[in-house]
Design a binder for these strands. Sequence first.
DNA 1: TCTGGGGTCCTAGGACCC
DNA 2: TCTGGGGTCCTAGGACCC
Length: 441
Amino acid sequence: MYALVDGNNFYVSCERVFRPSLNGRPVIVLSNNDGCAIARSNEAKALGIKMGAPWFKIRHMEQEAGLVALSANFTLYGDMSDRMMSLAAGLGPSQEIYSIDESFIGLQGVRGDLVSRAFKVRARIHQWTGIPTCIGIAPTKTLAKLANHIAKTAERKPGSYPQMLAQVCNLATLPAQDLDDVLQATAVSEVWGVGPRIAKQLQDGGIRTVLDLTRMDTATIRRGWSVTLEKTVRELQGQSCIELDDAPGPKQQIACTRSFGKPMHELGPLVEAVSEFAGRAAEKLRKQNCLASELLVFMHTSPYRPGAQCSRSVVVPLRRPTDDTLALAQAAADGMRYMYVPGFRFIKAGVILVELQPASVQQWELDLEPLAHEDAATATTPRDRSRLMTAMDAINCRYGKGTVHSAATGKQGPKREWGMKQERRTPQYTTRLEDVPVVRA
DNA sequence: TCTGGGGTCCTAGGACCC
DNA sequence: TCTGGGGTCCTAGGACCC
């Protein structure tokens, strides 16, 4: 048995905790660069604002409907997420943190009434963090996701599922006929694992509701689609195929990519940008104790703008697997210089570290050449460099991101040419001393 | 006229998730 | 003027092996 605990409109809810005046109003949180809506309050959804809607297209609602748009404050959301997750963990013996706002809880061995237990955990999360949640309970993860969707919909649109409570939904104890009715009332596109593409194909084949999909023959699904969708159908039928992953392994790739605040056409700032991205990625790499053997750099023009497009990428093999910021920044800069072509307005670039391996596994090699040139140039040994990285991470952790950084990344702060647009950022209420709210008596 | 069988590995692309 | 970022998994097809 599984539960899925999910924060409602999570980013918006995080903002509302510290600005209660936003309650009851249509609020959205914008993606990086204030590009598009990535979280919407119920009131914003009611205005018809779609997930991913470009800000410039809905901006008029600011005046017309009192819409409030905020720049994403991921530092805040990450911290609020940690608090929410630690409380959600109280629901059962195991937990998989599936995304910033969702976790699956394994309920094996939990006694008593699961629904009342879920309501208690939900109330505690709300009281202690201010975040409203919904909880779905079912025999498989896919059904738990569905149950969560039903709990949310029942809350947001009262009467949509007359059989069900709002906020907490347990599909496991539902009488068979009621379960069929609920599955019949839910579109197949709501199923976890069915994206827009497959939803269209299913609908074209007359499979419109979750009940239709649940009743499909698994062999037919496998032949017509894939083993992935077959698992989804089996999960809907109550056969657990997707295990709880409560100890995810290290990531297989680490990316840092950004759209620019304005298009870039010169090489200089592009080199600075990817050097910076490489450094950020290297930090994440060290956090999971891995080395990268290859680095991929890419850049492209805006697909939304008319005219000639340019999209380039290059894989830079590394002489030795490394987690060194300076070596990775150098590789990223080399890659950028190699692939750069003048005459285009580049809107986005990024660095992806691939072929990762544990730092504990060391490939020995014959001593056929002196130290790599980057080491020789700075007259440091690999061990010095490793200590330097540890020191950098410690300083940046204590005094804030970017306190020390590679000089290749150019000047820091909002003045940088390629920096992103964030005109509506809220304070870092929980992670910056100066930003902590003050209560006055 | 007629050209095997069985396997692995890699890559690109497509689909999905939040 | 203005359209996010970071992941995972699967599959098909090609290269290559004996």
